[in-house]
Simulated scan of single mutants.
Amino acid sequence: MLVEKKTFTIEGFKTFNGSFLPQVQIGWESWGQLNTRKDNAILVTHYFSGSSHAAGRYQETDPLPGYWDSLIGPGKPLDTDQYFVFSCDTLVNQEPFNPYVVTTGPASINPETDKPWGLDFPVVTIADFVNTQKALMESLGIERLHAVMGPSMGSLQALHWAAAYPEAVERMVSVIGMGEADAWTCLGLQQWAEPILADPNWQQGDYYASEPPLQGVLQTLMQINQQALSPELINRTFFQHHPMEAGPLESIREDYRMVKRFREECQERAKLADANHLLYLIRANQLFLAGQGSSLKEGLQKIQAKCLFLPATHDQLLPPYLARQTHENLLALGKSSNYQEINGSWGHLDGLYTITSQGELIRDFLAEK
């Protein structure tokens, strides 16, 4: 499938914490056709380092399709002959310098100053990501989603949709997700922020006219990428690694070949990323609580949707207990919830690369009456 990036603009946007943005722009993509009743829409919400590019290619020559291409398309579990599937770039997207990403965030121009917002940009939450999506949904004339689903940070958005707009969501699928950021998860996310905060080029977020904190961004992305992978996958990828490699034995200045390769791979993504955007994304995840109320129970109590949780058994970033607790809380509240673990070797990324193992379960869940 070939797909195009479209832009949606909101004039005047009030954030969850009460701040005001004069204008917000987000990118979005879609697959399939909206039917005349406009009741066949499925919203796919993306993960931390992702975008709305969930399936298809922009050009036939693109080396890889969108991240859930195995799920979305004609005859696939999210069958585009049956469903209208759409997805949105989030606010403060990790890669504002990616030509295929449209996002408003700290690197955007503040119309009042004609300079980048920097840290004057308001703190945003998962609720704000959802509210931009809801504005797009309403502009398309869609009143109710057949389903909302997404992996990792996308699962947070999907769950918040079900809690914040219960009458607008029929089904919710949380893949490699959680119901709230507990203390362990909050602290883990903070470790991603620390390299940027420690980079002298960060300058309290005011670096757009000078040298950006690229070293901090690189270290942050290296941490994220390692934690998203399983030990098994890393050991299999770098199978030639040996602890007694000559270079590191002879000089503290010399890195392992494996470390050099991993760093080089992360450097390519760092070119498209922005330090402040990463910090705002991290904070949005730290602030997450389904429903953004006083307690998880309060948020889950509002849910009317049928729910499906698909954590990854070997996930060390968002371990299965986070999804299991949410599922069990829903059952205790008398809600409809199902739970199935993805058993693979990718770790957290099983939610992207091993998701086809759950394809028939997802297909059946979407077809339930």
Rank of each mutant, 00 (worst) to 15 (best):
V102N: 01
D81G: 11
Q358D: 00
L43M: 14
H314M: 09
F121N: 00
F365A: 06
E298R: 03
M149F: 12
P77Y: 07
P195Q: 08
V3G: 01
L287N: 10
Q59W: 03
G32M: 02
L229A: 09
G73N: 02
A246L: 15
E29K: 00
A228K: 05
F238M: 02
T61S: 09
K5M: 05
A183L: 12
S295W: 06
Y100I: 01
T113Y: 06
D89E: 03
L233I: 10
S295V: 10
E167S: 15
H277V: 12
L287D: 08
D182R: 08
I196K: 11
S70W: 11
P63E: 11
T313V: 06
A323C: 09
D79T: 03
G27R: 10
A183K: 11
M244T: 15
Q304C: 08
W346Y: 13
Q25M: 12
N285E: 10
K306L: 07
A273F: 07
N285P: 07
K76L: 12
D81A: 09
I282Y: 04
T313I: 05
L317I: 05
Q190T: 15
P243L: 12
F129S: 04
Q215Y: 10
E298W: 06
H327K: 11
Q340R: 13
Q292N: 14
F20T: 09
T45I: 03
F13D: 04
E268Q: 08
Y83H: 02
D315F: 11
K5D: 00
Q226T: 12
A332E: 13
L218E: 03
E95R: 14
K335N: 13
T185Y: 15
E95A: 15
R37N: 13
G247M: 12
N338E: 14
Y339D: 04
N225I: 02
K115I: 05
T125V: 03
F86N: 00
G154V: 05
E250T: 08
G73Q: 03
Y339L: 06
A193G: 13
F238N: 00
G344S: 13
M149I: 09
L317T: 04
G359S: 06
I176E: 02
G247W: 11
T90S: 14
P243S: 10
M222A: 02
V101Q: 01
G118A: 07
P212R: 06
E298G: 09
I224Q: 01
A41E: 03
Y256M: 11
Q316F: 05
Q33R: 13
L78S: 01
E328A: 12
R57S: 03
G359L: 06
V44M: 10
P116Q: 13
D274A: 13
H146Y: 08
H146N: 11
Y207I: 07
T313L: 14
L2T: 07
P166F: 09
